[in-house]
Design a protein around this nucleic acid. Structure first.
Lengths: 199, 199
DNA sequence: GTCTATACCTGGATAGAC
DNA sequence: GTCTATCCAGGTATAGAC
């Protein structure tokens, strides 16, 4: 019988879900643990029993979201070989997940984690983003992407799409992100691809 | 004799300067008005006399930085005609100012203002960024930039460079931003420019 | 593991003298 | 306009019963 354990697990998850919602809407500093208590109906004592302190909730949230993204990227890497296919698949995935779970995306991209998680690396150095950089690196080695600084290549490919996600999260775009995928991708890729001799 | 007024003005500025420094390093919520008092040696009473409340300091800071950027962009517009020249000049300016005054850039780009300034529009809708979008729009009308959604075009041009600024502010780049200008610009512009018929 | 009650303190803001 | 002293709300975290 693990019913009790399961109930505890469920509570754990309920706390995380509500924290994500509140953190993205009001921000980390504007949401108190009392707020989480009120909305989840889980007592303050339990919350502290599960997480220890407020920062730890934020950290657990971040870890979980980054892990999810990391897994998605590794899966994409095993399903596609060229940098071109991989990068496009990643952008497509980011667009879809931004629509399906905007809070998670918002939290990862938009929150300044370093303000309340001082020991955290910047997003761009997190595991999934490092993977994306690796993909670009091998694309350069393979001659798919023209010779250029790695960081410049990475921002040239992903900078536009990420910016577009911000616009969407800020409510500026009318259409859903996948609607813009092809146009956006065309610009990104055309910018970094090896130049045809005639041009 | 305006010596007293001038002393007051100076104090005003000292508060703003220190607030910018503290807000960008520790974040808005982690810096107390007492911190500002301690570092500037201006009393709490004076600080509140000048600004009314803590948010107003943040707002004044934001307004001043956005105004500065707005003026720079308008100047660039009067000095250059084509979208190509204008956009490149803007990116070049952003790169330079990021090196010269990283705190200001950091504050404008990286802070989540809506978290502590709930009535503030998102950065992307601020006056200078709206101007940049207009430039892109006229570039499309003129046929300089190929036919595509305006938002997509804008993020394709500026998304990469802005991402690169983030990397620099996060200490990821070794070289100063202007060092990457040409490579970065080439990718951005090539991505959105009208396609040659042979390709 | 879960709860209630509470300790403790930080920090925004004001009062009122100068 | 500037200052010091102070107020007090709200928030993190803990104690201790169940």
């Amino acid at each position: 019988m693990t019913t009790l354990q399961e109930k505890s697990q469920l509570k754990h998850q309920r706390i995380l879900d509500m924290a994500l919602k509140l953190f993205t809407r009001r921000g980390f500093f504007k949401t108190s643990v009392h707020d989480i208590q009120r909305e989840t109906q889980v007592s303050i004592g339990s919350i502290y029993h599960h997480f220890g302190n407020k920062e730890a909730i934020a950290k657990a949230l971040l870890d979980s979201i980054e892990e999810q993204l990391f897994l998605a990227v590794t899966e994409i890497m095993s399903n596609h070989q060229s940098a071109q296919e991989r990068c496009k698949a990643i952008i497509s995935y980011l667009f879809e997940i931004s629509e399906a779970d905007p809070d998670a995306m918002h939290y990862m991209l938009y929150a300044r984690h370093r303000e309340f998680l001082p020991d955290e690396k910047p997003v761009c150095s997190s595991r999934p983003f490092s993977l994306m950089k690796e993909i670009v690196a091998t694309g350069i080695e393979a001659g798919e992407i023209r010779e250029m600084d790695l960081n410049v290549a990475a921002v040239s490919i992903f900078g536009g799409p990420i910016r577009l996600i911000f616009l969407r999260l800020d409510g500026v775009l009318e259409q859903k992100l996948p609607h813009y995928l092809d146009a956006c991708w065309q610009s990104s890729w055309r910018g970094v691809t090896a130049q045809p001799p005639s041009w």
